[in-house]
Design a protein around this nucleic acid. Structure first.
Lengths: 214, 214
DNA sequence: CATGCCCGCATGTGATCACAAACGGGGCCG
DNA sequence: CGGCCCCGTTTGTGATCACATGCGGGCATG
């Protein structure tokens, strides 16, 4: 076809990034149905790149296939959510700990700025903005850990939790940033490694705890 | 086309499973080049299912694409290997701990049998058999943890390490099962949770430690 | 004999077609 | 009025084709 848009990356890569971002930020509710032809048409490409992007996202747990092959965002069971939260609680403190020696003042200030943005998103009840800035807060720290494989796995977990997080934060009306973020920043400033691990673990575990109200 | 082989699963699923197993067991050395047409021809299907299987494996880190899209098994840097080993050391003790309360006598005996098979594979210098039985030993335990998401992530890590493990075990001539396996079995029998965590962590960390000889 | 260029072929990407299955709505029967 | 069946249509799967790209071997050149 005419390469009207001469983007650097291949078509399926663009579809993949677009879908991945929408899922991770919770723009799609759990159980949302998708079709290959719909995705393809939306991006003005044929079914082939759509198939590859979907296949990739299914492999990462960001989408699920019904027994007959229909595509939808996953509807997570409570057990699975708790398991994914446990994985976050296992890996993220490790990433934070590895990032701590490299976390300079400038980084901490940038994190504080993002934390303020989280507060703004919370005040205006912007669920997607809240999720996005919250993930940015964590990712900015973890990038300093110089551990790409660990970060990739954590992002996969975030991806799987995306639709559920949206449903969760859409219900719980927050007005302020997570309380543990201040503890994370304080521990970073103090160079307090055990405190940082605890703060990160608490932050990660806390948000996913009130699920009994489902 | 004529559905000559009426297998239950779709074609790309069969290709995926076949390739995944070969990679995880270390049948392919690091840097081994593959082609879509080659994979397709080997399984008597068209390129389409081969593409989807490869895409899925790339998403899991089992295969890597060059900048021009060529397919090969990944050649891991030492840093990445250490990171993946750290992930194993983080998650596998947790899985073992969760499996412990459900680990009955019958399970422990089956693990002991597999451990003997590991010894046989080691004696006959059967690298692939060694890797396969070793993973079976761990998987059999972790299945009891009732934590499918964690198990899936650990298996992804195993998958990424597959070609490297082959290169590793092919060089180091082992003659016996990993020494920490006896500690794992003993901790299981004694119901000793902290000991189990330590034994698993040691087992996982130990095997990947002697990399300086590269 | 070493080195760099060049062309042919292998390879991945995307589009399109054919087909089987299953979803779902409308109508029929109890 | 409710439940069930049936058929049209949507949807995923696999095959095949056209094309751009880049790798690699062979030849010419210094």
């Amino acid at each position: 076809m005419s390469p009207s848009r001469s983007s650097e990356t291949s078509a399926h890569e663009r579809l993949y990034r677009n879908l991945r971002q929408r899922i991770m930020l919770g723009e799609l509710p759990p159980g949302q149905a998708l079709t290959l032809r719909g995705i393809a048409a939306e991006h003005r490409v044929s079914m082939t790149p759509a198939r590859e992007a979907v296949r990739r996202l299914v492999a990462e747990g960001a989408l699920s296939l019904s027994s007959s092959g229909r595509i939808a965002t996953p509807e997570l069971s409570v057990e699975r959510i708790e398991e994914l939260a446990a994985l976050r609680g296992l890996i993220e403190p490790e990433l934070a700990s590895r990032a701590l020696p490299r976390a300079h003042q400038a980084l901490i200030e940038r994190m504080a700025v993002i934390n303020a943005a989280i507060g703004e998103a919370a005040e205006s009840h912007d669920a997607i903005g809240y999720i996005r800035t919250n993930l940015e807060f964590h990712r900015l720290l973890y990038l300093r850990a110089q551990a790409p494989a660990m970060l990739a796995i954590v992002e996969t977990v975030w991806l799987q939790l995306g639709p559920t997080m949206r449903a969760l934060y859409g219900r719980v009306k927050r007005n302020e940033p997570p309380r543990h973020h201040r503890m994370i920043l304080a521990s970073l400033r103090a160079g307090d490694e055990p405190g940082l691990r605890l703060a990160v673990r608490a932050d990660v575990t806390h948000g996913l705890r009130h699920l009994g109200t489902t």
